[in-house]
Design a protein around this nucleic acid. Sequence first.
DNA 1: AATAATTAGTTAGCTTGGCTAACAAACTAT
DNA 2: ATAGTTTGTTAGCCAAGCTAACTAATTATT
Lengths: 157, 157
Amino acid sequence: MPRPSRQADAERIADRLHSAAIHLLRRLRTEDDASGLSAPRLSALSVIVFAGPLTLGELARREQVQPPTITRVARDLEALRLVRLEAHPGDARVKRVVATTKGTRLLHDGRRRRVAALAAAVAALPTGERRKLADALGVLEQVARPDALPAKSERRG
Amino acid sequence: MPRPSRQADAERIADRLHSAAIHLLRRLRTEDDASGLSAPRLSALSVIVFAGPLTLGELARREQVQPPTITRVARDLEALRLVRLEAHPGDARVKRVVATTKGTRLLHDGRRRRVAALAAAVAALPTGERRKLADALGVLEQVARPDALPAKSERRG
DNA sequence: AATAATTAGTTAGCTTGGCTAACAAACTAT
DNA sequence: ATAGTTTGTTAGCCAAGCTAACTAATTATT
């Protein structure tokens, strides 16, 4: 058979990636009960824990959602005492989100539990397969990043 | 540093995969406008198109959602004339979902558009990186399949 | 200094897509 | 005939996304 064009190849990869991501998350969602946190909350908490204190706007951009969505997530996480909302010194418009000890602890425990089932499946893979997955993670993360997309038809590199 | 245990390795992979999947889908969701179909509808339509006519129950299992969710998705897709709901010959309880020509066409066009941005990012990758991604797709799909996960602590194989 | 423009975040209200509980209809087994 | 099972629907809830419209605070302009 003729070698598929780079474009066709990329589209096939993108399509399968898309589909796999959908099914992966559906599967993981069923594990939510264990951690007690939904995927978006867990994701936001994760950013707060790992990316240190940051403003709501920064968090919204990181999470690729609109400001009102972050307002609610932050409020909910605060009600659970997993984060604190602090005034920004020097700019009274801004609020900073900081993880509490409880939040940090819950993140690690909960997240581990949440991915436990997936981790088990990964651990059950033959070494070669697991290696393939590990090798692709960097690219995957890069491709999943919002700025990975060429704006319209630029960056044709 | 000491080589991480297989378990720790698997957990780290699972964790990053989880995170990447979340961000990937968020990114893709913003492309929804182009196709006019949301991710769940597109996914369901895809199954209907590729897995041929199937019953609502089968579709629900495939999509890993509960029956009422599928009822609604099917109703919406039918309202858009993308699928038809037919009586099952020989069992009046059952409904079969069949893709219309319009549905099949829209799937192919829409899905391509939907993943276009992702495909562009993939196409922009250096060949080696793109190869890594392609190599991991099979494993990724396997891991994303619902039965890939050991139920509780069974299926340790 | 006053005012205009911009920025950060919130509130209100809508939409989609999950879920459970309770049900109707149809099929199957006793 | 009747009891139980299976298939799908209806009703009603919740989470999490969005836009539009707003307040408060900062920055820029006159």
